[in-house]
Simulated scan of single mutants.
Amino acid sequence: MPIRDAVENDTDDICSMIEEHARYEGKDDLVLDRAEMARHLFGPEPKAWVLIAEVDGATAGMAFCSWNFSTWEARPGIWLDDLFVRPEYRRLGLGRQLLAELKARTEGRVEWDMQEGNEKAAAFYADLGAEPVPGWVRYRWRG
Rank of each mutant, 00 (worst) to 15 (best):
Met1Ser: 11
Pro2Glu: 08
Pro2Tyr: 00
Pro2Trp: 08
Ile3Met: 07
Arg4Val: 01
Arg4Pro: 03
Arg4Trp: 02
Asp5Tyr: 06
Ala6Ile: 06
Ala6Gln: 01
Val7Gln: 15
Asn9Trp: 10
Ile14Val: 13
Ile14Arg: 02
Ile14Leu: 07
Ile14Phe: 03
Ser16Thr: 12
Ile18Lys: 05
Glu19Leu: 04
Arg23Asp: 00
Arg23Lys: 11
Tyr24Leu: 15
Glu25Tyr: 09
Lys27Met: 10
Asp29Phe: 04
Asp29Val: 05
Leu30Phe: 06
Leu32Met: 15
Leu32Gln: 02
Ala35Leu: 07
Ala35Met: 01
Met37Gln: 12
Met37Pro: 02
Ala38His: 07
Ala38Trp: 03
Ala38Val: 06
Pro44Asp: 13
Lys47Trp: 04
Leu51Phe: 11
Ala53Pro: 07
Glu54Met: 05
Glu54Asp: 10
Asp56Pro: 03
Asp56Asn: 08
Thr59Ile: 02
Thr59Pro: 00
Ala63Val: 07
Phe64Pro: 05
Trp67Gln: 11
Trp67Asp: 04
Trp67Ala: 06
Asn68Trp: 11
Asn68Lys: 05
Thr71Glu: 09
Thr71Leu: 03
Trp72Phe: 13
Trp72Cys: 02
Ala74His: 03
Arg75Lys: 12
Arg75Gln: 07
Arg75Leu: 06
Leu80Thr: 03
Asp82Lys: 03
Arg86Leu: 05
Tyr89Ala: 09
Arg90Pro: 02
Leu92Phe: 14
Gly93Asp: 01
Arg96Cys: 02
Arg96Asp: 09
Arg96Met: 06
Ala100Gly: 13
Lys103Trp: 00
Lys103Gln: 15
Lys103Phe: 02
Ala104Trp: 00
Glu111Trp: 05
Asp113Gly: 14
Gln115Tyr: 14
Gln115Arg: 15
Glu116Thr: 14
Asn118Pro: 11
Glu119Leu: 13
Ala121Met: 14
Ala122Met: 08
Ala123Val: 12
Phe124Val: 08
Tyr125Phe: 14
Tyr125His: 02
Ala126Cys: 05
Glu131Phe: 04
Pro132Cys: 01
Pro134Ala: 09
Gly135Asn: 05
Trp136Gln: 15
Tyr139Arg: 14
Arg140Asn: 14
Trp141Ile: 13
Arg142Trp: 06
